[in-house]
Design a protein around this nucleic acid. Structure first.
Lengths: 71, 71
DNA sequence: TCCAAAGGTATGATATATCATACCCGTTAT
DNA sequence: ATAACGGGTATGATATATCATACCTTTGGA
């Protein structure tokens, strides 16, 4: 599994969980204190984001980071 | 669990697995194609590193990224 | 018809991760 | 005694993640 594939997997999992929560990217960005201009590319797997950012997203979605790695 | 605590946990897990493999930080850095001036602070939890870097380390240690998150 | 909401992209500025290198300190072997 | 090794830090340069903002497109409702 390449780095790009990993990032895409993580992004898809974030999107999936966010939609399960019924919230928009804007709202998630607000809850994570981050811009959608950063959040959306993360969900698309275009940005090699940091652990700290994943932690913020995981907290906002009330899941564990490990959930973002599941296939 | 705070971000700092997460980073420290990840760093400790990396160090632990690296020592189980019996390799030095310099060797791991070489296998990951990264400098020890970056690797050691990551093992210490001082740097908010990226997913891409964790992937490189995980590959070099032949483990899954999720193993770095275990307590 | 139109307007607001949602997803998405573009761009310049700022913050920070990483590189490259040099150096310090303990320990261990010679 | 000292040289080599392992861990660790310091620093300036470079790459890139994130911010802040503006803009586009599509879709759904008034």
């Amino acid at each position: 599994m390449t780095e790009r594939e990993y990032l895409i997997l993580i992004g898809k999992n974030i999107t999936k969980i966010r939609k399960q929560r019924g919230i928009t990217s804007k709202e998630l960005g607000y809850q994570c204190d981050m811009e959608k201009s950063n959040l959306i590319p993360i969900e698309k797997g275009r940005i090699n984001t940091t652990i700290g950012t994943l932690i913020k997203i995981a907290k906002a979605l009330d899941v564990d980071i490990a959930d973002f790695l599941k296939r």
